[in-house]
Design a binder for these strands. Structure first.
Length: 491
RNA sequence: CGGGAUGUAGCACAGUCCGGUUAGUGUACCUGCUUUGGGAGCAGGGGGUCGCAGGUUCGAAUCCUGCCAUCCCGACCA
């Protein structure tokens, strides 16, 4: 198992020191759990953004931007929504500072108190629906298919780097529809977009399903999700898509005139994924040598490292390396040629493995003599010699092979760690001693789910969409149950 | 906010129990020479409010009191 993100010591290891660091905001306060995303980490996020953004555009969505601040009154209009988020909100109360004459320190100017407090968005449903009210009059104005790339703040009691930070980057889609069916189709469509992204870009297999009532988004009728399994046997919610019904339309009085000339409330969906996905990427694929990035999301796919003793050797190698780099770039491959003289080849090998570069090409005097190069792949750490005449093709093929291989490896891991429990003793044993996903019958009540959570720390990750209904007995209560649901301990 | 642990150089730690030279090790950093096919070697060098405040003492990183912070486990959660 990879050493990443499993304990304190390892949390601060170099594994993700390249990606992120904790922000040192205050010496003496409750401010915690903020992260600085370093350039290399941000480059990965940009790759994710680009791929997701294209998928959103391809499904008819446009980007827009809404305010960071939400008036408290907007926030409290949807009852279960405000209840769900109330305990984790940052609140703006003042708009000015002043110099204190006595202490000569900068203090909050009490005269500049806001009449109505502003909430720093933990999610944007309220301010967006308040805005949609003005955009929608007729069925001709629908649907509205909008996405926003933004930061949000959730003042969690306990944070965890990448997975649950006080401030995080994400995208949130907010759509408005004329019919319930259309909104539900949108909800499922976006869940599928997320699943496709996770599997074909991140190389992380996911289970698609519905959240139980306990785990549902505050304000949603149904929450769809994708659940992934990390290498330490814990589950991670990787993305959610909510069918909001008419809850927000009613709260913000968003009605449209239908073809029959009748006023009707608008139907809604919202969906989001966050920088948590970077945590998923790290935890799903890393090994003891560091990150393993899927080629489709690696900021740089290939690194070329020259090996030389004399300057003339470097000059000769560099001439070839530049040609190789240009050839690969023509084929759409991103390449870095690292001819720094400040580090030795062995140091560079270790460094690029730590950073997860999918392919490394080493070229030395011996290669120049034999017209070969050494190609190493990150996922298996295999090294092979190839003729210089065939390298370009080899690399292109290798990149798609790596992409496929790391997905298959993660899929195999998930299959090996997915089990079924038919009684509570077996269930507890699996959760406690094996980890991973456990399928078990559930009677469908929140009470049972809560009891199981209290006793085992396992929660229902989702009610999977692709498993058949069949008669069974709840693993906890023994009452009749219709379906096996997916349990796991989760992040 | 409860339970536990920890705070010593950029990072990782030893020293604390049992007070006593100039606070140490690894790594990172700087200089020089030799090196370069898997994180080089040697020599020299810079870097410390020992978390903060108070107390005990001839003398405190070490003992006492208070405070602060961090991490892990819970409650909360993308």
């Amino acid at each position: 198992m990879a050493k990443v993100l499993t304990s304190k010591e390892e949390n601060y290891s170099q594994w993700y020191n390249d990606l992120v660091t904790k922000a040192d905001l205050a010496e003496n306060s409750a401010v915690r759990g903020c992260m600085v995303i370093k350039p290399y980490g941000y480059a990965i996020w940009e790759k994710m953004q680009a791929a997701l953004d294209k998928m959103f555009k391809d499904t008819g969505h446009s980007n827009a931007y809404f305010p960071l601040f939400i008036p408290k009154s907007f926030f409290s209009k949807e009852a279960s929504h405000v209840e769900g988020f109330a305990k984790e909100c940052a609140v703006v109360t003042h708009y000015r500072l002043k110099n204190d004459e006595n202490t000569n320190e900068i203090v909050v100017d009490e005269d500049a108190r806001l009449e109505e407090e502003l909430i720093v968005r933990p999610t944007s449903e309220t301010i967006i629906w308040n805005t949609y009210k003005g955009w929608i009059q007729s069925y001709r104005d629908l649907p509205i298919l909008v996405n926003q790339w933004a930061n949000v703040v959730r003042w969690e009691m306990r944070t965890r780097l990448f997975l649950r930070t006080a401030e995080f980057l994400w995208q949130e889609g907010h759509t408005a529809h004329a019919t319930s069916q259309e909104a539900q189709e949108e909800t499922i469509k976006m869940m599928n977009v997320y699943a496709t992204f996770a599997e074909s870009f991140m190389g992380v297999p996911v289970i698609k399903g519905l959240k139980s009532e306990n785990e549902r988004f505050a304000g949603a009728i149904e929450t769809y999700c994708i659940e992934a399994l990390m290498q330490d046997g814990k589950a991670l919610q990787a993305g959610t898509s909510h069918f909001l019904g008419q809850n927000f339309a009613k709260a913000f009085d968003v009605k449209y005139l239908n073809k029959e000339g009748k006023q009707e409330y608008v139907w809604a969906s919202s969906w989001g994924v966050s920088t948590r996905l970077m945590g998923a990427l790290v935890m799903a694929h890393s090994d003891d040598n560091g990150l393993v990035l899927p080629p489709k999301l690696a900021p740089t796919q290939v690194v070329i490292v020259p090996i030389y003793k004399k300057d003339e050797q470097l000059k000769e190698i560099s001439e070839y390396a530049h040609v190789l780099k240009a050839n690969l770039e023509k084929l759409g491959v991103t390449v870095k040629y690292d001819d720094r003289d400040t580090h030795k080849p062995g140091w560079k090998f270790a460094e690029y493995e730590l950073k997860g570069f999918p392919v490394r090409i080493a070229i030395g005097p011996r290669d120049m003599e034999n017209k070969t190069v050494e190609v190493a792949r990150r996922d298996t750490l295999e090294k092979k010699l190839y003729n210089q005449s065939e390298v370009e093709k080899v690399v292109v093929d290798l990149l798609s092979d790596i992409q496929e291989n790391i997905y298959n490896k993660a899929l195999r891991f998930r299959e090996e760690n997915t089990r079924t429990a038919d009684n509570y003793e077996a269930f507890k044993d699996l959760i406690e001693n094996k980890g991973g996903f456990v399928y078990a019958f559930w009677d469908g009540t929140p009470e049972t789910e809560q009891k199981i959570k209290e006793e085992t720390k396992a929660t229902i990750r989702c009610i999977p969409l692709d498993t058949e209904e069949k008669e069974g007995k709840c693993v906890y209560s023994g009452k009749p149950a219709k379906k096996r649901v997916l349990f796991a301990r989760a992040y």
